[in-house]
Amino acid sequence: MASQGTKRSYEQMETDGERQNATEIRASVGKMIDGIGRFYIQMCTELKLSDYEGRLIQNSLTIERMVLSAFDERRNKYLEEHPSAGKDPKKTGGPIYKRVDRKWMRELVLYDKEEIRRIWRQANNGDDATAGLTHMMIWHSNLNDTTYQRTRALVRTGMDPRMCSLMQGSTLPRRSGAAGAAVKGVGTMVMELIRMIKRGINDRNFWRGENGRKTRSAYERMCNILKGKFQTAAQRAMMDQVRESRNPGNAEIEDLIFLARSALILRGSVAHKSCLPACVYGPAVASGYDFEKEGYSLVGIDPFKLLQNSQVYSLIRPNENPAHKSQLVWMACNSAAFEDLRVLSFIRGTKVSPRGKLSTRGVQIASNENMDAMESSTLELRSRYWAIRTRSGGNTNQQRASAGQISVQPAFSVQRNLPFDKPTIMAAFTGNTEGRTSDMRAEIIRMMEGAKPEEMSFQGRGVFELSDERAANPIVPSFDMSNEGSYFFGDNAEEYDN
């Protein structure tokens, strides 16, 4: 993207840094990872977990959730003011799984939030270390993106479920800051804005008074975040219109849905970061690795190297396929839920299948599930090659597409044709070009129609051997075009429920 120079890199967003050079960025990201790792080690000690239990991804998720809940100030305040039966607002906890007599047992633990905050700050040299908290939120978000298709949420806001490739980060909490905003897809931002506008339509006082002023500035800020994701002048001009509207209503909703559809071809720039579970960072720190000293990046080879040398386990339900569970977590670790499966298959070195073909449910185990038949197995999170994460949407291309997802959002900077089903997408653009945004709409449609099938995206960008740390010898991959490109292809993934 041309304006790259004016933006802070995501590592800076990730670490609240002012302008830093590459070495400083690597050190501050490393410091953040160190903090998460030290916190995780301490929690495993508190909970008396064995090494194996500490490497269980379900335990990692519970521990991450506990610290996120302990620092969720708004919710904590709300819980104190609106006490609900049987919930102690000062405590947080969740299921911890232990191996007892050759069987997995679930144990519900409860801790004072104050105590968890103390352990977290102690692991982070006394700081609140917001960057580390956001990092864990993005890992949870990436896992949700890989596990669930947001059909219901899309339909509720009037969008087409086939636009799911635009929904990265749709389950990120509001408090995820600049680093969170960077990884949100165009569809996620559109959905947040539509929800806001709908509230304004239904509630006369939404934009009024002292609160209304705050609401208005939040609305304009979200519009600017979305505008910054678009790469064409016409899309940005249309966002200006939406932002400046005196009284946002149905016309703005129409414009936003139009823009979301246009992003299936004229893709937005959305950041991709490899955020790993805390149970990967903990053992690495415990083994003596100093992330701050060595430096770390979320968008280069580092996460690949770390996963190459990590042992992570997962509980497996009786009829689940461990290899499929591994694929789910591998995609989440690489922030690749909406990437082209052919690119992923090449990088991973084994075939990556669409969601609907995987015999696996989510990673988390519900409290009512029976533990008797639970097994555990090693997650295979290694890769054959590594590639640089991208934040450009890439230019655009036609490809055989599917009944489910009709476009992709690249996660890796790797040369390819970008699949999208042009006739299906263009069919949504018939007729409606009147109104105050008509010239911009016409211009956007013209650009979409001009998108050429034979153009290559990320020209000359390749993948790298894991021994090639400096990215000196790019390998331009070859793809098996007979395979499906979309992950949520004609899909039956479970729906995400809060």
Results as ranks from 00 to 15, higher is better:
202 N>G: 06
119 I>W: 08
477 P>K: 00
167 M>E: 02
149 Q>N: 06
448 M>F: 02
108 L>K: 08
137 M>S: 05
356 G>S: 07
121 R>D: 04
441 R>W: 09
255 D>M: 08
92 T>I: 06
90 K>W: 03
124 N>K: 08
114 E>W: 14
13 M>D: 14
67 V>A: 14
159 M>S: 05
388 I>Q: 04
275 C>L: 06
101 D>R: 08
460 G>A: 15
349 G>Q: 10
334 N>K: 02
336 A>I: 01
363 V>P: 03
365 I>A: 05
231 Q>K: 14
57 I>F: 07
32 M>T: 11
276 L>G: 07
281 Y>N: 10
431 G>K: 03
256 L>D: 06
57 I>V: 15
303 P>L: 08
34 D>K: 04
135 H>A: 09
362 G>L: 01
275 C>T: 14
257 I>G: 07
426 M>R: 05
25 I>F: 05
272 H>W: 04
463 V>A: 11
210 E>T: 05
351 K>C: 04
47 L>C: 14
191 M>N: 11
236 R>T: 09
495 E>Y: 08
278 A>M: 12
489 F>G: 00
71 F>M: 07
466 L>V: 09
74 R>H: 12
359 S>E: 01
198 K>F: 10
353 S>H: 02
196 M>V: 11
415 Q>F: 12
126 G>V: 06
388 I>R: 03
97 Y>M: 05
478 S>H: 12
58 Q>A: 07
74 R>S: 12
360 T>H: 08
181 A>L: 08
385 Y>W: 04
386 W>K: 05
123 A>R: 10
30 G>A: 14
70 A>W: 08
267 R>K: 15
25 I>E: 02
394 G>N: 07
152 R>V: 03
384 R>D: 00
115 E>M: 09
405 Q>F: 05
29 V>E: 02
340 D>Y: 09
290 D>M: 13
366 A>K: 03
357 K>N: 14
113 K>W: 08
184 K>H: 10
394 G>S: 00
181 A>D: 08
13 M>A: 03
268 G>L: 01
305 K>M: 07
85 A>C: 10
16 D>C: 08
1 M>W: 12
208 R>E: 11
178 A>V: 12
58 Q>G: 06
342 R>V: 06
198 K>L: 10
413 S>K: 09
418 L>R: 00
23 T>G: 13
67 V>C: 08
4 Q>M: 11
150 R>W: 12
154 L>Y: 03
142 N>M: 11
280 V>G: 05
380 E>H: 07
414 V>C: 15
300 G>C: 07
363 V>R: 01
243 R>Q: 11
28 S>C: 12
147 T>D: 05
88 D>R: 00
156 R>V: 11
310 S>Y: 15
276 L>N: 10
65 R>M: 09
144 N>L: 06
397 N>Q: 10
490 G>K: 05
484 E>D: 10
448 M>G: 03
223 C>G: 10
16 D>Y: 08
275 C>P: 06
361 R>N: 03
245 S>K: 01
265 I>L: 15
477 P>C: 02
332 A>C: 03
210 E>R: 07
476 V>L: 13
152 R>G: 06
315 L>A: 08
147 T>R: 05
498 N>F: 02
422 K>P: 00
84 S>V: 04
73 E>V: 14
302 D>M: 01
63 I>T: 06
80 E>G: 11
237 A>R: 06
307 L>K: 06
202 N>R: 03
223 C>Q: 12
173 P>D: 10
471 A>G: 02
254 E>I: 11
49 L>M: 12
486 S>T: 14
237 A>C: 13
317 R>Q: 04
134 T>L: 02
271 A>H: 03
233 A>Q: 08
64 E>T: 08
248 P>G: 03
23 T>N: 12
477 P>V: 00
256 L>R: 04
488 F>L: 08
476 V>R: 11
428 A>V: 06
367 S>E: 03
432 N>I: 07
6 T>S: 01
336 A>Y: 03
454 E>H: 06
199 R>I: 03
240 D>Y: 07
497 D>R: 00
453 P>S: 11
259 L>N: 11
460 G>P: 00
375 E>L: 14
80 E>K: 08
160 D>V: 09
400 R>A: 07
242 V>K: 02
32 M>A: 02
84 S>E: 00
217 S>Q: 14
391 R>A: 02
473 N>K: 11
170 S>Q: 09
145 D>F: 07
359 S>F: 04
207 W>N: 07
25 I>N: 01
470 R>F: 00
435 G>V: 05
350 T>P: 00
245 S>R: 02
273 K>L: 04
391 R>Y: 06
26 R>W: 04
173 P>Y: 06
369 E>R: 03
90 K>A: 09
8 R>Q: 14
465 E>K: 05
154 L>Q: 04
146 T>K: 08
149 Q>D: 02
97 Y>C: 12
255 D>F: 03
383 S>D: 10
74 R>F: 08
463 V>K: 07
322 P>E: 02
329 V>W: 09
129 A>S: 14
247 N>W: 02
55 R>T: 08
449 E>F: 02
482 S>Q: 02
31 K>W: 04
490 G>I: 01
127 D>C: 05
299 V>N: 14
405 Q>I: 00
197 I>C: 12
137 M>Q: 04
177 G>D: 05
389 R>D: 07
17 G>W: 02
210 E>C: 13
30 G>H: 01
344 L>G: 07
303 P>D: 10
370 N>V: 10
494 E>A: 09
17 G>F: 00
368 N>V: 11
235 Q>D: 07
416 R>C: 12
272 H>Q: 14
214 K>P: 00
49 L>C: 08
119 I>L: 10
184 K>V: 03
252 E>P: 06
128 D>I: 03
103 K>G: 10
249 G>I: 08
48 K>H: 12
421 D>P: 00
76 N>E: 13
291 F>T: 06
455 E>W: 00
449 E>L: 12
426 M>V: 15
205 N>D: 09
13 M>P: 00
304 F>V: 15
30 G>F: 10
441 R>P: 03
311 Q>G: 03
48 K>P: 06
12 Q>K: 15
55 R>P: 09
56 L>N: 15
28 S>R: 11
238 M>G: 13
325 K>N: 11
478 S>G: 07
402 S>Q: 14
438 S>C: 01
347 I>F: 13
56 L>F: 04
198 K>E: 08
334 N>V: 03
466 L>I: 14
423 P>R: 15
493 A>W: 09
233 A>Y: 00
272 H>T: 02
162 R>W: 08
26 R>D: 01
415 Q>R: 14
351 K>Q: 13
457 S>L: 14
141 S>K: 02
50 S>H: 11
402 S>N: 01
161 P>E: 00
34 D>I: 14
118 R>S: 04
457 S>V: 08
201 I>N: 11
392 S>W: 09
285 V>S: 11
274 S>M: 09
467 S>Y: 03
281 Y>V: 09
463 V>R: 04
332 A>L: 06
289 Y>H: 15
379 L>C: 13
364 Q>C: 12
189 M>Y: 11
479 F>G: 05
265 I>C: 13
113 K>P: 07
247 N>K: 05
234 A>G: 08
394 G>P: 01
242 V>W: 04
480 D>C: 05
184 K>T: 05
92 T>A: 11
148 Y>P: 08
398 Q>C: 06
453 P>I: 01
384 R>P: 09
320 E>A: 05
347 I>N: 10
202 N>L: 15
248 P>F: 02
